[in-house]
Design a protein around this nucleic acid. Structure first.
Length: 154
DNA sequence: GCCAACGTTGGC
DNA sequence: GCCAACGTTGGC
């Protein structure tokens, strides 16, 4: 895989089970409304990149599964929908401000809890764990990806 | 370009 | 519900 990412989702909105039950086990990753995360979606991701699917803002935060990026960067459809909480009146179809990408399940895993991530030396440097991090999409190194796999398969 | 006010994130 | 931390907004 060319690159690796950790992507946060609130399970009430889009959980690993939603992904598992979606057609082709694929969902469009919509609702990113932060420019740095948008730039990752637009410029840095490539189809085939690995994704750590992370449940956030929930009773048991942590990595809940593995996925992959499975499509190109496209305009986020929710920005044009006035009924969507992600509606952005300042965005126009001519110059869409926000992007989405398809994400496809690789496999559901046991929950690798935030506490366990913090307690694992090999993961201590993960960007998502840095104090004050608020990005919903963060890059993951190959070493971190492999350390996560090792923990999940242990 | 500065920066105060405000809004959001997200763990606890 | 609390609150630290950070992003965004908008007046100047």
């Amino acid at each position: 895989m060319p690159g690796y990412w950790l992507m946060k989702s609130e399970p009430d909105e889009a959980s690993i089970d939603h992904l598992s039950q979606a057609p082709q086990q694929t969902l469009p990753w919509t609702g990113v409304r932060n420019y740095q995360a948008r730039n990752f979606l637009r410029d840095a991701m490539q189809p085939g990149d690995g994704v750590l699917f992370y449940h956030s803002s929930c009773p048991a935060p942590g990595i809940a599964g593995l996925a992959r990026i499975s499509g190109p960067a496209l305009p986020d459809t929710t920005q044009f929908d006035p009924r969507s909480p992600y509606f952005d009146p300042k965005s126009t179809p001519d110059s869409p401000r926000w992007l989405q990408r398809d994400v496809t399940l690789l496999r559901k895993t046991r929950l690798l809890s935030l506490a366990e991530m913090k307690a694992t030396p090999a993961l201590a440097g993960m960007q998502v764990l840095r104090r004050g991090n608020r990005l919903s999409i963060t890059p993951v190194t190959r070493e971190e990806w492999q350390a996560v796999l090792a923990l999940l398969d242990a």
